[in-house]
Amino acid sequence: MKDSIKVFAPATVANVACGFDVLGFAVENPGDEVVLTKKSTPGVKITTITGDEGRLTKDADKNTVGVAVSRFLKHLQIDAGIDITLHKKMPLGSGLGSSAASAVAGVFAVNQLLGMPLNQQELLPFAMEGERIACGSAHADNVAPSLLGGFVLIRSYDPLDVIKIPTPANLYSTIIHPQVEVQTKDAREILKKQIPLRDAVTQWGNVGGLIAGLMLSDYQLIGRSMKDVIVEPIRAILIPGFEDVKQAALSAGALGCGISGSGPSIFALSTSEEIAHKVGSEMQKVLNSIQIGSEVYISKINNSGPQILD
């Protein structure tokens, strides 16, 4: 077994339009990297964090990657010493599962470092505990796709029931991250506590349609199912230019477009890399026109999840 390991874990898009809190998918970029190194003295220590502009704590009991690794070791009753270096390779508070990627990278790395005592699916509860530290809720719609890759459905939390959904070969993701900030807490607080039955029925139909479209590689069904009548209409007001960005994506050939997680990032799905790049360019033009900077990420759906780096 190695004494040190470097791991990449991918960013994710949660909700995926109609699938609020139950759907997510992983992308090839961006993501986070961690380096875990064994040490002689017991305990988990975060030695270095880069790319966070000093915003994240190095306290292992209060940082998502430290908590995930610590819970893993505690569960297996292993009194190991682990030093962690965290490289944030994606924007914080972007709606791309930044905290989830860190937790997943950490728990995947420590499992590899200790000879893989658990399988990949068994690592999920520890990554979820990292998420609890980051946002107050151990939700899985970011950590599950980051850990397992591909599209993931969280059917239930009690008991935890997570299903990986087959993904069409030529499905591409465009993500644009506007340089504005949306607090997850604010994005949750503005949501309605009750919804009309009519809207619920529409949403259920769209979730079923989206999953069926993915499994059947029916791109048109995927497109017409990517409609959120419950959450997006409310959260859109927090993202400047959202409706114009979405329309630009659809006009450029995207199958569908929506808010990634709680925002401010916006994602679109397309049937080719060429269309995905065109979609990104048109989305960015809209934000440029209202003087908002942005980053664009283009990738296929990441079906593998975390990777060991040389």
Results as ranks from 00 to 15, higher is better:
Ala26Asn: 12
Lys88His: 08
Pro145Asn: 06
Gln179Arg: 15
Val207Ser: 01
Ser4Trp: 00
Asn288Asp: 15
Ser299His: 13
Gly31Pro: 02
Ile239Trp: 06
Lys185His: 06
Tyr219Asp: 09
Thr85Ala: 13
Met215Arg: 13
Thr57Met: 10
Ser146Trp: 10
Ile298Val: 06
Gly280Asp: 05
Pro264Arg: 05
Ser137Gly: 00
Ile211Ser: 13
Leu76Tyr: 07
Ser4Ile: 15
Val231Ser: 04
Ile84Gln: 08
Lys164Glu: 10
Val27Pro: 02
Asp199Arg: 11
Val152Thr: 10
Ala236Thr: 02
Gly241Lys: 03
Val34His: 12
Gln179Asn: 09
Ile234Asp: 07
Gly293Gln: 14
Gly51Ala: 04
Gly43Thr: 13
Tyr297Pro: 08
Met1Arg: 11
Lys193Pro: 02
Asp59Cys: 07
Pro306Cys: 11
Leu191Pro: 00
Arg198Gly: 01
Met215Pro: 01
Thr202Phe: 14
Ala254Arg: 14
Gly81Thr: 11
Gly43Phe: 08
Leu214Ala: 05
Asp83Asn: 14
Val16His: 01
Leu23Gly: 04
Leu287Ile: 03
Ile290Ala: 02
Asn63Cys: 04
Asp79Gly: 06
Lys62Asn: 15
Glu274Pro: 00
Asp79Lys: 12
Pro125Asn: 06
Asp61Phe: 08
Asn303Arg: 15
Ile259Glu: 05
Met1Trp: 03
Val107Ser: 02
Glu131Trp: 11
Met283Val: 04
Leu23Cys: 01
Leu191Trp: 02
Gln203His: 05
Asp61Ser: 15
Asp310Gln: 13
Pro145Ala: 02
Phe242Leu: 12
Val180Thr: 09
Ile165Thr: 03
Ser289His: 06
Ile298Thr: 09
Ala276Glu: 04
Thr48Met: 14
Asp59Gly: 08
Gly95Ala: 04
Leu148Ala: 11
Thr12Phe: 04
Gly149His: 07
Pro117Arg: 12
Asp161Ser: 13
Met128Trp: 07
Gly263Lys: 02
Arg188Trp: 01
Ala140Ser: 12
Val69Met: 10
Val143Tyr: 10
Glu181Phe: 07
Asp59Ile: 09
Asp21Gln: 01
Gly261Ala: 03
Val69Ile: 15
Thr50Ser: 12
Lys278Ile: 10
Arg198Met: 04
Val286Ala: 08
Ile237Asp: 09
Leu56Cys: 10
Val162Thr: 02
Leu23Arg: 08
Ala200Ser: 14
